[in-house]
Amino acid sequence: MIQTIDLYKSFGDLQVLKGINEHVAPQEVISIIGPSGGGKSTFLRCLNMLETPDSGKILFEGVDITSEKVDIDLHRQKMGMVFQHFNVFPHLSVLENVTLAPTVVKKIAKNEANEQAMELLNRVGLADKAGESATSLSGGQKQRLAIVRALAMEPDVMLFDEPTSALDPEMVGEVLDVIKGLVKNGMTSVIVTHEMGFAKEVSDRVVFMDGGIVAEEGTPDEVFNHPQNPRTKDFLSKVLY
C-alpha cells in the first residue's frame, strides 16, 4: 500500500533519514519505536508529505507522491493522520471538527456529514459532546476527536504520530483502546509510539529506528523478546514496559 524507496531527509546539516526502505501492506499494523531524534516522526511525516524528502520515492497505492506533478491533496484524503498534540480545531465545535474536511474537501452535504460524524463520535463515546467547543475537551477526548476527524475522510491508512505522548497517564488507555478497535477492524496503520506494551500487542511488525536508519525490524516477538541488534537491546533495556 505504501512503499518507500531510499528515503533521505536533512534539516540543514542534520541528516535525519538515511535511506529508508519500507513497505506497508494492506491491513498491516506497523509500530515504529526507537530513541528520540532517531527519525521516527520525520519518516511518518514524509509518508503523507508533510515533510518533503530530499530524495527517494514514496509509492502510495502505486503512485509516486513525491513527484511535483501529483496532486498531493487528493492522496492525503486517503491517509488519516493523528498528531502528538491533537491539533483539534479550537474555533469549531466537536461536531464541526469532524465534518469540516468531508464538507469542504469531499463536498458532502451538511446533514449527511453530520449523520456520519455522529455515528463516528458515538463509536468513541463523544456523541454527547458534539455541540461543545473542541477546547472544552480533556486531552484524551481531544485525541479521540482527532482520530474520528481523520476517520471521517474514510482513509485507507492511518498514521499515528506519538498519539499518547502528550496525554496525562490516566488518559492513555482510552486513546489506545480506540486505536486497538480500529486495528482490529483491519485498518492499515503506522504508529510511532513509546508505548512498548501497546506496540507489542497490536503490531504485525515492529520497526526499530535509530540514527536515521531502520536498525532492526520483525514481528513483535522477534524485536522485543529476541533483539539481535545491540542498539535495540540497549534501547529496550532502558525502556520500561
Binding site: 491533496d73 498528531f83 491539533n87 481523520a150
Partner: peptide, 14 residues
C-alpha cells in the same frame, strides 16, 4: 499554531 495547518492539510484540504 503550525499544527493547525498540518492537521488541515493532512485531511486533504488545499
Amino acid at each position: 499554531d503550525k499544527g493547525q495547518t498540518e492537521a488541515a492539510r493532512s485531511l486533504g484540504m488545499n
